[in-house]
Design a protein around this nucleic acid. Structure first.
Length: 598
RNA sequence: GACCCCGUAGCUCAAUGGAUAGAGCACCUGCCUUCUAAGCAGGGGGUUGCAGGUUCGAGUCCUGCCGGGGUCGCCA
């Protein structure tokens, strides 16, 4: 029977009952890991707040609670400190029992949400015809991590790449190609035969053509006008444009998939803005009938302002003056589609925080139009901008953006160099060495990004992102690999460690050298819960690092395999297994793969 | 101009309103003939931008100011 929560949560229940018995709210009973480990393992600060609401002396309230808690055998020490903090230590038996009971089912104390609700996650958002650059890193890996976190919590998850494949850039490229190659059959309205199966452009071509087209439109209003018309004609189904556009999609998606494969980022759906094109007309019709869509300066808009707005809120534009739709329109139609197909509990958008206003417009329109009934369905989990060392949005020295592919291969090269220095790599074949280097490099990249608070901007520093020492992904891998190696040498009996398998008999014997690690292991459900509730993978990064660090300290201070006392040896091996299990899980939740050796 | 976010160690970042604000990098001192040194043990480094306020208690909440970034209808 697995424990369904963290130790602190279980202790909260005990202390809350004491508060209730004193006629006080159970909310005061919250117990958390002490922020003063030198004073206690756990603390409850509720007596202070309770005293205030009851008009009593805090220490007297605390004293009454302590008297009741003394009856509980799980506590080894209960003390009042300062103005009324209740400091708590638990017995080693209680700690050991908790760790044993939460081992073995792979959940480490995290309860499963059994509702089976669906969460759609929208992340990545790469654009057709543009190479993926470092800016796509954040959306991809934060989104993929959140998908893994939701999945582990028990939700059904659908990660959607949501390609940028339907807007003005498509028209700009079409117009540019039509200017350069007017003889192509794609531009001949009289052409009736099948269009070529082979793409006339490669990804390299597109990488040159798109910036050229974009620049031309910026400088020349005539070119921009033709790009707008091409966009509209594409959206209206002009056959030659559609055929050429499909080639763009195919060559672009092939490039993206290579990048995502290297990163280990997974998507369940490869839809894009164009996927919902057929839903737009009926959706607009419906919004018209409801009186929500109206003409404004030639455009069709939905007013989304609210009474409480501090400043005027711009309307959502459904169709522009020229009749073409905007990305807000496709985003709204995508909600229509997702609700229809998946009836999601949540739709989480992992998109740059600078698009806050856009999503607020779309979300308000969706609520007004009755597209979603629960306002909490739609969530924008925004992230901060990736800046250069100068504090401005990141650019390479030559002024362009760094391609994601170059970032990854650069990291792999550095990892290979590090591997070659170490003697361990000598007996690896070329393929294994490459794969280990890729895992190390990707771990470095992902951890360097994910450890930052999702919402705050952060400085992109190439050297730091491909650093393997200190608070880095490779450090975590290294600790996990060391534990794996140690456990292989431990020659454990079939079915695992007796200290875990038979907790009633042996238990995990603890000492001052390993107790901090044991306590930290018991914290896992709290950190998972915080990461899930707030959509913040960095919480798990921090926990994983602390766990690895605590283990490394333990490993350095205690020689495990040569331990003479069988109970102590078994207990320490059990802690190794428990640490490895959590480390592997947390790394998996972060989307980080572990090599067998490094 | 209006609105939103940010300001924490030399640098990059943490810290559900709680006790003595923590890590990593960089710098300094030790430790590889015992389980992987991508490591461990230890050290120096802070008026949390400034000024008020609320609170038993503020890096955290409120007000003002200074500094930085972002957004503000026909791009995505």
């Amino acid at each position: 029977m697995p424990c369904m929560s963290s130790l602190a949560h279980i202790l909260s229940g005990v202390v809350a009952a004491a508060f209730e018995a004193e006629g006080l709210s159970t909310a005061f009973g919250v117990v958390r890991v002490s922020d003063r480990p030198d004073l206690a393992q756990f603390q409850c600060n509720g007596a202070l707040a309770a005293a205030k609401s009851a008009g009593k002396n805090p220490r007297e309230v605390a004293q009454a609670i302590v008297v009741r808690l003394k009856e509980n055998q799980d506590f080894s020490r209960i003390e009042i400190a300062g103005p009324g903090f209740i400091n708590l230590d638990i017995t080693d038996e209680t700690l050991s029992r908790y760790l044993s009971e939460t081992a073995g089912d792979g959940r480490w104390g995290v309860p499963t949400i059994i509702s089976g609700e669906t969460i759609v996650l929208d992340y990545g958002g790469p654009n057709i015809a543009k190479p993926m650059h470092v800016g796509h890193l954040r959306a991809s890996i934060i989104g993929d991590s959140l998908r893994r976190i939701c999945l582990f919590a028990g939700y059904r998850t659908l990660g959607d790449v949501h390609l940028g494949d339907w807007g003005l850039p498509m028209g700009q490229i079409l117009a540019e190609l039509e200017t350069r190659y007017p003889e192509w059959p794609y531009f001949d309205d009289a052409y009736r035969g099948p269009y070529p199966a082979e793409s006339p452009v490669t990804m390299d071509d597109l990488e040159e053509i798109y910036p050229a087209a974009s620049q031309a439109c910026k400088l020349d209003e005539g070119r921009m006008e033709r790009a707008r018309l091409a966009t509209r004609d594409l959206q209206n189904g002009r056959a030659g444009y559609r055929a050429l556009w499909e080639h763009f999609i195919n060559v672009s998606v092939a490039g993206m998939q290579a990048n995502f494969r290297a990163l280990g980022v997974h998507f369940d759906l490869w839809k894009g803005e164009a996927s919902v094109h057929e839903l737009i007309a009926p959706m607009i019709e419906d919004l018209r009938e409801k009186g929500l869509a109206r003409e404004s300066d030639g455009a069709l808009v939905v007013e989304v302002g609210e009474e409480s707005d501090k400043k005027e809120f711009p309307p959502l534009i459904l169709t522009k003056r020229d009749g073409a739709v905007m990305y807000g329109t496709t985003d709204l139609a995508t909600i229509v589609e997702r609700v229809r197909d998946y009836n999601p509990f949540r739709i989480i958008y992992v998109v740059d925080q600078r698009q806050f206003l856009h999503f607020e417009q779309v979300f308000r329109a969706a609520r007004l139009g009755g597209i979603v009934s629960n306002p909490e369905t739609l969530v924008h989990a925004g992230f901060g901008t990736m800046n250069g060392p100068d504090g401005k949005p990141f650019k390479t020295r030559v002024g362009g953006v760094m391609k994601l592919e170059d970032l990854i291969t650069g990291g792999i090269d550095k990892a290979l160099a590090r591997l070659n220095e170490a003697e361990l790599a000598a007996d690896m074949d070329e393929k294994e060495r490459q794969e280990v280097a890729r895992k190390v490099a990707v771990a470095a990249l992902k951890f360097a990004d994910l450890q930052n608070n999702r919402l705050s901007d952060y400085i992109f520093d190439l050297d730091r992102m491909t650093s393997f020492e200190g608070k880095t992904g490779p450090y975590l891998l290294y600790q996990a690999v060391r534990i794996q190696s140690l456990l292989r040498k431990a020659d454990l009996p079939e079915g695992g460690n007796s200290a875990l398998r038979d907790p009633q008999k042996a238990g995990i014997s603890l000492s001052s050298a390993d107790r901090p690690l044991a306590l930290l292991l018991a914290e896992f459900p709290d950190h998972f819960d915080a990461a899930l509730r707030n959509y913040t993978p960095h919480i798990l990064c921090d926990y994983a690092f602390r766990l690895a660090q605590e283990f490394s300290s333990f490993y350095g201070n205690c020689h495990i395999l040569s331990e003479k006392n069988n109970d102590v040896r078994a207990g320490r091996l059990a802690l190794c297994e428990l640490t490895l299990g959590r480390l592997l899980l947390v790394l998996d939740l972060l989307g980080i793969e572990i090599p067998a050796r490094m």
